[in-house]
């Protein structure tokens, strides 16, 4: 299926006929989907349906798996990300990622946040400090860590570590933030904090989130895509998906009949 959006310039990503194989196993089948600017797009589906694979394709992280092969195109603001002229390093500064398990570096909190700016060539100490403060404030972590910026990031709780990873992502000033089940390793309170954070972040960033929790998708997202066995079954406004799904399989999944 293919939902055409009349406001094309509002689309950050335009996925066209995307197929993806791991060796001989097809993980994504002819995906057509647009991701809108300043919206939270949730991707739901049972384990192994291809939702993580899909989100990792958007910034080509999936290519770290050596046997991956893709066809079709993904337009990012109109440019195909698979085009030879597109450098993955450049794409990933624009399309950042937050992972399932919090993965801070074994460095200080400050060094974690400024890692991105530093590798992209910013050396000015004062500027780095400003970036760190702004990023940690955006990630709602500043008040908790401002007195111990030089402590090792591994001393933070899991929820704080995940928000640190979000701050680290923001510090690169991306356009899109991809989140791969960002709260699956967190307790309910930490999850709530990350969800509140996402809601405030969508003012400035476009967010795509893979989640196992349908409640989470319903709570936070503007649009929801339902994947099953590598197919995009249904993609619509979140209220529509949850209140009035058009496909029987979507309905079965969101009412908890499988998955």
């Amino acid at each position: 299926m293919n939902i055409q959006n009349p406001e094309i310039e509002n689309n950050v990503f335009d996925v066209r006929g995307l197929n993806l194989w791991y060796g001989n196993d097809q993980a994504l089948k002819n995906i057509n989907m647009q991701i809108e600017k300043n919206k939270i797009t949730a991707i739901i589906g049972p384990s192994g349906c291809g939702k993580s694979t899909f989100i990792k394709t958007l910034n080509r992280m999936i290519e770290n798996v050596p046997i991956v092969r893709t066809t079709g195109e993904i337009l990012y603001h109109g440019n195909d990300i698979f085009d030879k002229s597109m450098r993955v390093e450049e794409l990933r500064t624009k399309v950042g990622m937050v992972f399932q398990k919090p993965n801070p570096f074994p460095k200080s909190i400050f060094e974690n946040v400024v890692y991105g700016p530093k590798i992209h060539g910013i050396k000015d100490k004062k500027l780095l400090m400003e970036i760190a403060e702004a990023s940690l404030k955006s990630a709602a972590l500043w008040d908790e860590v401002k007195d111990r910026l030089n402590d090792n990031a591994y001393g933070l709780s899991g929820g704080q570590q995940q928000r640190l990873c979000i701050a680290r992502c923001i510090a690169v000033q991306p356009d899109v933030i991809l989140m791969d089940e960002p709260t699956s390793a967190l307790d309910p309170i930490a999850t709530l904090k990350v969800e509140e954070l996402m809601d405030s972040l969508k003012q400035e960033y476009t967010i795509a989130i893979v989640t196992h929790s349908m409640q989470q998708a319903a709570r936070i997202s503007d649009k929801t895509a339902f994947f099953l066995m590598g197919d995009l079954i249904e993609y619509d406004k979140t209220e529509a998906i949850f209140s009035n799904p058009r496909d029987k399989r979507t309905e079965d999944y969101i009412t908890g009949r499988f998955g």
Binding site: R92, T93, G96, F99, K101, N103, Y115, I119, C169
Partner: peptide, 25 residues
């Protein structure tokens, strides 16, 4: 591997990742 992923995810190239993340660890 998740440390390398974190670095690649911010647009770091391989050598930067090796120098700043892999070798120190």
């Amino acid at each position: 591997g998740f440390l390398r992923e974190a670095s690649y995810g911010m647009g770091a190239d391989k050598w930067t990742t090796i120098r700043k993340v892999v070798l120190p660890v």
